[in-house]
């Protein structure tokens, strides 16, 4: 079933413009979006949560037109690359932030503890956020977004600031939590491992346009655009891919 459908979306930000973006995400999908810096990935995510005004096009969530709906009524969560944890709140209150309006204190505590346990941060709930490690901050940010059970979770390069080993652990943890909560995700990342191990769909953006949105296999074998093949590689006459895009990491596959 289609969860998010975007039709011919066009949004302006100063000099920059998102042009004619169309795609749809089904319930349970895990989409990973890549693209050069400045392609407008972050801006697209912010447009989906609803903080930028659309010039043209429509956004549907569950077949309901939300193009003009205020962000607070959309139920779409976002996790930023730089965590953006509230500095004036401790870990517990950061995670509980989105629950304050709907749930009584007892219920809030239950929910926060449950999600903190799943993300292995239940031991730091009382800490202020400024002396957490990067990996801990990122988990707190993810916890804050998923504790309210958003209908759609958007993540903007959540692992890019982590070292490779932590990144691997985080990926595994995230995958488990996402499956557990049956969440639909749109995740921005340039990491082939993320695409291989998390995604069932992959997208590529360039200069405000969505060039291709498909399965990873199709992106690899049938790139729709020069830029896509630059990133994912393209089959040559001799059947080998010209550019390097690492194959599915076999060694870690069992671990997932």
């Amino acid at each position: 079933m289609t969860l998010l459908r975007i039709e011919n979306l066009q949004i302006q930000a100063g000099e920059f413009q998102l042009c004619d973006i169309s795609f749809s995400i089904s319930t349970g999908d895990y989409c990973i979006m890549a693209g050069e810096t400045g392609a407008g990935k972050t801006f697209l995510l912010e447009s989906i949560i609803g903080v930028h005004r659309c010039l043209n096009g429509r956004i549907y969530l569950d077949e309901k037109d939300i193009t003009c709906m205020l962000p607070e009524y959309r139920g779409i969560g976002i996790v930023y690359q730089d965590h953006a944890l509230f500095p004036h709140l401790n870990v517990f209150n950061n995670i509980a932030f989105g629950l304050k309006k709907q749930f009584p204190k007892k219920k809030r505590q239950e929910k926060v503890h449950a999600v903190a346990e799943a993300l292995k941060i239940d031991h730091i709930l009382k800490r202020p956020i400024d002396n957490l490690s990067g990996g801990e901050k990122q988990r707190v940010a993810i916890a804050r977004a998923i504790v309210v059970r958003p209908r759609l979770l958007l993540m903007d390069e959540p692992f890019s600031a982590l070292d490779p080993l932590t990144r691997q652990k985080m990926r595994r943890l995230l995958r488990r939590v996402i499956r557990q909560h049956r969440m639909t995700v749109l995740h921005i990342s340039h990491d082939p491992a993320d695409m291989w191990l998390l995604a069932n769909k992959v997208a590529y953006m360039h200069e405000g346009r969505l060039l291709q949105f498909d399965t990873l296999e199709t992106m690899l074998n049938n790139p729709a655009h020069e830029k896509v093949s630059e990133f994912f590689g393209r089959p040559s006459n001799r059947g080998k891919r010209i550019r390097f895009f690492p194959p599915r990491p076999a060694a870690t596959r069992e671990a997932y």
Partner: peptide, 12 residues
């Protein structure tokens, strides 16, 4: 961004 997050979490 802090405000975007807050609004995505349901605050006006």
């Amino acid at each position: 961004r802090y405000e975007f997050i807050s609004r995505s979490l349901g605050y006006t």
